[in-house]
């Protein structure tokens, strides 16, 4: 049991490292948002599951944190992506832009 929990924790640490590296190395803002969100979400899942396996009493609280992260992290990154789009940090080589019909043109204040 201990070995399984250690394996989960090491995998979680690796994904956290991958998330930090992705945020550092990706070329533009939207790629950074993508890699940061995905890698840290899975890293948090595996690391917390490893901790839960090591101490079965904590499994419920760990599960609560996992559910909260799974709900909140993608919402936060969506809000960030919308803000980044509105402050005009677009990638150089866009091939298609459907969001322009929503935000482009006049300066609307709708949420």
């Amino acid at each position: 049991m201990e070995i399984v929990s250690y394996v989960f924790m090491i995998i979680g640490g690796l994904f956290y490292l991958l998330g930090g590296l992705g945020v550092l190395r990706m070329p533009d803002t939207f790629d950074r948002i993508q890699s940061g969100t995905k890698a840290t979400t899975l890293g948090a899942f595996t690391l917390l599951i490893g901790i839960g396996i090591a101490n079965p009493d904590w499994l419920l609280k760990v599960f609560l944190i996992i559910v909260f992260i799974a709900l909140a992290n993608p919402i936060g990154s969506s809000a960030l992506a919308k803000a980044a789009y509105k402050s005009c940090e677009l990638p150089k080589n866009l091939v298609q832009d459907d969001l322009k019909e929503l935000f482009g043109g006049e300066d609307n204040d709708s949420n």
């Binding site: 939207f30 993508q34 969100t37 993608p74 969506s78 992506a81 789009y85 969001l99 929503l102």
Partner: peptide, 11 residues
């Protein structure tokens, strides 16, 4: 959609 490969839902 946000957590699948290569996509990120914006709005």
């Amino acid at each position: 959609i946000t957590l699948t490969p290569g996509t990120l839902s914006v709005d």
